[in-house]
Amino acid sequence: MKQRLLVMNGQRLVQSEKGGNWNTDKVEKAGAVKPGIYNIHLSVQADKSKAHDGFVIHADKEHVYQQVGKSFVKHDRADFDKLPEIGTNSTIKYDNGKATVASSSMKMGRGIS
């Protein structure tokens, strides 16, 4: 199932595609997540041998999604003792299979790509 995150007007909409149409499953406050369309269905499983530095954009029952550069990484929710806050810029790395979260100094901005 394809899933995306649509952030606009201070709201975070979790949508899933059914029959070629996007249906809204959940609406929450956007918080610190920047407006845009985040195609989290394109996310790849986190490589536990590396540190992942980026913005945490969404968490569901199974995964925590993080934007790293222009791509998305998903971490298993069960690997966290304490979930990172949505919208925070974090470095997530693994120690003995458990995810540890530290705040990052990276800034999110618009630039020429």
Score class of each variant (00 low, 15 high):
M1T: 07
M1R: 13
K2I: 01
K2Q: 14
Q3D: 02
Q3K: 10
L6R: 09
V7H: 11
V7Y: 09
M8D: 14
M8R: 08
M8G: 08
N9V: 07
G10R: 14
G10F: 10
Q11G: 08
V14L: 05
S16E: 06
E17M: 15
G19M: 04
G19K: 06
G20Y: 02
G20P: 03
N21E: 12
N21K: 10
N23A: 13
N23Y: 09
T24A: 09
T24F: 08
K26L: 11
K26T: 11
V27W: 15
V27R: 09
V27F: 14
V27D: 15
V27T: 15
E28C: 11
E28V: 10
E28A: 14
K29R: 13
V33F: 09
P35N: 10
G36N: 06
I37K: 08
I37H: 14
H41V: 06
V44E: 13
A46Y: 01
A46N: 02
D47S: 13
K48T: 11
K48Q: 11
K48Y: 15
S49L: 07
S49V: 04
K50Q: 13
A51N: 08
A51H: 06
H52Q: 11
H52D: 10
D53W: 03
G54L: 05
I57T: 05
A59D: 13
A59S: 07
K61W: 05
K61N: 08
E62F: 12
V64C: 08
V64R: 00
V64M: 03
Y65C: 01
Q66S: 05
Q66M: 11
Q66F: 01
Q66T: 01
G69E: 08
G69Q: 04
F72N: 01
F72W: 00
F72Y: 14
F72M: 03
V73S: 02
K74A: 01
H75M: 05
D76P: 06
D76M: 12
D76R: 12
D76N: 05
D76A: 14
R77N: 00
R77M: 02
D79L: 04
F80H: 03
F80Q: 14
L83Y: 06
P84E: 02
P84T: 02
P84A: 04
E85F: 04
I86D: 06
G87Y: 08
T88G: 15
T88C: 09
I92C: 07
K93D: 00
D95I: 09
D95Y: 06
G97R: 09
G97Y: 09
K98V: 04
K98H: 14
A99D: 02
A99K: 00
T100D: 15
T100M: 12
A102I: 03
A102R: 02
S103K: 15
S103Y: 09
S103L: 07
S103M: 09
S104M: 07
M106P: 00
K107L: 15
M108W: 07
I112D: 10
I112Q: 06
S113W: 12
S113Y: 12
S113M: 10
S113E: 10
